[in-house]
Amino acid sequence: MPLDNPVLSSLLPVVLLILVGYLSGRFNVIRQEAVRDLSNLVFLVLIQALLFRTMCAVDVAHLDFSALSIYLATAAGLFFVLLVAQGGSSRAAVLALSGIFSNTATIGIPLIGLAYGKEALVVLFTLISMHSLVLLTMTTVVLELCSAREQAHAGHTRSGHLRTIGLAVRNAIFHPVPMPIIAGLLFAQTGWVLPGVVDRPLQLLANAFSPVALVLMGVTLAKTSIGQHLRASLVISSIKNLLHPLLMTLLGYAAGLRGITLTVLVMAAALPIGANVFLFAQRYQKAEELVTASVVVSTVMALFTVSLVMYLLPLWVG
């Protein structure tokens, strides 16, 4: 595979950043005690800037909700099937998110831009504008509901169902992921523009999100035995890299999507697991090692699965 191949040129930087983190963790350049602080930096600072700044540029009036809704409905449907199949716990919710949440920015933008051009990027940016808002907010609500239920069972409390749901919804709204998304979306609808003195620092913080998150993932990987999680991570990666795009192809085609729109949505579904899933696993301390292994396996597997999807797409899309 030549180095100028769009798949390789998009995935290789991700693999190398994870490798940098792995070596840093292996040789104790970044010690285990610092991992939680780095995780807080990424989750409570960098991702805030990224989500708020992304949503500030969203003009709801110009979004193509028809195609977008098909992608999000496909992902949400698969999420709840995986959630139920794995027992409906908070751990199951994190693993279900692994099966649907794509690395649309770090890998998707350069890959789809190189392979399909500017027209395809318009479709992708439309998807990115709602991708985190819908899928991460949905997962946050489910995680908070599951966590509230599990805490109630553990403490043998008899608090009412409505109170439990109310607390979970409140925690889901006042949460590091939905809050900047909602705030940015509301700001975008005012028509105002962020002044440069504010936008520039936000841009720098947002740009730092992906590399720092991937390095952090590598540090965690250095403390993780992939061998004991290999089988499970292969299953999760296969669901993300193969089943997700297959479902998107079938449902998108059945809904009448064709051409570049369907191509981009299927390619987005075929992308490997995004770093946000790893951060959710760390935040809720659920399946951290398995999710870390799955992100790495999914990214490496994508070298072959994304190439396969790109090869087969013309047969479906026409």
Rank of each mutant, 00 (worst) to 15 (best):
V134H: 03
P6I: 13
K286R: 15
A168V: 09
G113H: 01
I47A: 11
L315W: 09
L38M: 15
V277L: 08
L315N: 07
Q48T: 14
M179Y: 10
D64Q: 11
T292E: 04
S129I: 02
L143H: 10
K286G: 06
L23I: 14
A287D: 12
S102R: 01
L162R: 02
P110L: 07
I165Q: 04
L145D: 08
L205I: 11
V317K: 00
L242P: 02
V122C: 03
V142C: 08
L11F: 07
L11C: 06
A213W: 06
R163D: 13
M138E: 08
L68G: 07
P6T: 14
V177S: 08
L17E: 13
V60D: 08
H161M: 11
V264K: 07
F27A: 12
K223I: 00
L82A: 11
N207S: 10
Y253L: 15
T126L: 05
L167S: 08
M267L: 09
L83W: 08
N5W: 03
I260L: 10
R91F: 10
L250M: 01
E33C: 06
T74F: 05
V141Y: 00
M179C: 05
I273K: 01
P195K: 11
R36N: 14
L83N: 01
W192C: 03
E144C: 07
L114I: 10
Q228K: 13
L95N: 07
L82I: 00
Y284V: 06
Q203L: 05
N40H: 15
C56A: 14
Y22K: 04
S233H: 03
V306R: 02
L290P: 01
M130A: 13
L111G: 01
L12D: 05
P245A: 14
S210P: 09
T106P: 01
D4Y: 12
A172E: 09
T263Q: 04
L19E: 02
F278P: 08
D4W: 13
A34N: 15
S66I: 13
S233K: 08
A92Y: 01
I107T: 05
A85C: 08
R258C: 03
